[in-house]
Design a protein around this nucleic acid. Structure first.
Length: 485
DNA sequence: TAGGTCACG
DNA sequence: ACGTACGTGACCTAG
């Protein structure tokens, strides 16, 4: 599965890397259907031994035949080092992380659930009072009727089926009407309740731990994904969300340790582009958004205002995503002309970044794919499209993928190094989660063990690769994931 | 199952 | 003149 994914990481269909699917499409063999041997309401344990034996032997055979097919292809595409030295070594580490699980304080979530239920009921009442009647607030169709017909509010963005009621639209409308703000609050609370607060306790094992599945062949860029439950999107961005993160707790006698890379994608961008100004900022170890603001506004770093820094931060992210002046203007609430001036100023100061973007797109147009620092590939079928929108979208993907994907490579390499060093150190610290640029571990609550683990993390995460600029991490630890010290 | 929405990096 | 930032997974409604 991993080999097939490395050879073409663009997901086509629903289960493109499932063994049976690969056997059919790559080997032209159709195997025993799982559903034919495991009846409804049964498990694999109910299957007679001889039937189960055939099924399992077939899986082993398919795996071998696929290996023989893919091995030379990996070599031909220079993907063999990535496959053997990174992905295959990561696989058992992910398995262990899944088995470890992370402890969740279900009592704390139950208490929070009571509070949320009351606050949601209040929000509902306030909405119905303002509207004058009841309706299903969660139905975008009904909400559209309320906002745009009953209340005659101005229509904004269109969706395939009508007019959008998403956060950005409601925030606009909140300036002229009382209802949108109430809807926003309602949505925020119900999202937290249904996705996290009510769900996580049901998924705990007998030790109060939840076990995610890390999906190694799930993304087009090389990142992992996390499912059932997704533990890579646990809230943090506001206080209500943080209370959910705080329910992820250290088991008795342990602490949780979090280590996250500082601005890893911008560090990668500095390395890939070799931009003088951006490399210098990272080498000097300064706040990159402040440094960017100083450059584009032409002031000293200590003269940078909060507003200037916010603007610079938005543009820094915008570059990674392939920003437009339109989006930047909306995001910052400024005229489009001014947004364009900021962008021009940005590329005047970071000239090599513009060159990197242009060179990356040009390479993609010629080769049909882009790659990361470890040679991970992504084919971009529409990079030479005649359709303007499609072409622009392909260009953003071409520029973003080497940045996001190289960061993913680095984190995977760091996980392998950290895992090995932790085994050697014998402190009892274990990897639990990976959230793209962050590793979460648990560790015996013992000063020597914690200090050793923190040292291992600095050593092996910061030196996972050698770039032309330093990689930095910040490490925190404590009794729960929401409040570290 | 598709579409809309929203949680995260 | 046109459309308008990358990558995910989960929940809810509607058909």
């Amino acid at each position: 599965m991993v080999a097939a994914w490395l050879l073409n990481p663009e997901r086509i269909g629903k289960t493109p890397y499932a063994l049976e699917h690969l056997a059919e499409t790559k080997l032209g063999i159709s195997g025993i259907e799982y559903d034919d041997i495991v009846g409804k309401g049964q498990t694999f344990a109910d299957v007679p031994l001889d039937v189960a034996t055939n099924y399992c032997a077939e899986d082993a055979d398919f795996t071998w035949q696929l290996y023989e097919l893919f091995a030379p292809q990996l070599t031909a595409n220079k993907l063999d080092a990535l496959f053997f030295s990174i992905e295959m070594r990561l696989l058992p580490i992910l398995a262990e992380m899944e088995l470890n699980g992370i402890h969740v304080d279900s009592d704390a979530l139950a208490a929070y659930n009571e509070e949320l239920t009351a606050r949601i009921a209040d929000a509902e009442k306030a909405i119905y009072k303002e509207i004058g009647h009841e309706f299903n607030i969660a139905s975008t169709k009904q909400l559209q009727e309320i906002l745009f017909e009953e209340r005659q509010l101005p229509k904004g963005k269109k969706t395939k089926t009508g007019y959008s009621t998403d956060t950005s639209v409601l925030e606009e409308l909140a300036l002229i009407d009382a209802v949108p703000q109430l809807i926003l609050a309602y949505r925020e609370l119900t999202k937290l309740q249904s996705t996290y607060v009510e769900t996580l306790p049901k998924l705990c094992d007998e030790h109060g731990r939840v076990h995610t599945s890390f999906f190694q062949t799930g993304t087009a860029t090389g990142r992992l994904s996390s499912r059932d439950p997704n533990l890579q999107n646990i809230p943090i961005r506001n206080d209500d969300g943080r209370r959910i993160r705080a329910a992820f707790t250290a088991a008795p006698g342990t602490v949780l340790i979090s280590a996250d890379y500082s601005q890893i994608e911008l560090v990668v961008l500095a390395h890939l582009s070799q931009d003088k100004n951006m490399c210098r900022a990272f080498t000097d170890g300064v706040d990159i958004h402040r440094a960017t603001a100083a450059l584009i506004f032409g002031v000293a770093e200590d003269q940078v205002t909060a507003d200037m820094r916010r603007t610079a931060k938005t543009i820094n992210f915008g570059v990674i995503y392939g920003m437009s002046a339109f989006r930047l203007a909306h995001q910052l609430g400024i005229p489009r002309r001014q947004a364009q001036e900021f962008i021009d100023s940005y590329f005047a100061q970071y000239a090599a970044i513009r060159n990197f973007i242009e060179a990356t797109v040009a390479t993609a147009e010629i080769r049909g794919y882009v790659e990361t620092i470890f040679g991970r590939r992504r084919y971009i079928a529409t990079i030479n499209s005649k359709n303007r929108t499609e072409k622009a979208s392909a260009e953003r993907i071409a520029v973003n993928t080497p940045v996001q994907g190289s960061a993913a490579d680095i984190v995977k390499k760091a996980m392998i190094a950290v895992d090995e060093a932790l085994s050697d150190a014998q402190t009892g610290a274990r990897l639990l989660l990976q959230v793209h640029d962050e590793l979460i571990l648990d560790c015996p609550d013992d000063t020597a063990a914690i200090e050793k683990t923190v040292a291992v993390l600095h050593d092996h995460m910061e030196h996972a690769v050698t770039l032309s600029v330093p990689l930095r991490i910040s490490v925190e630890y404590g009794k729960n994931w929401g409040a570290f010290h």
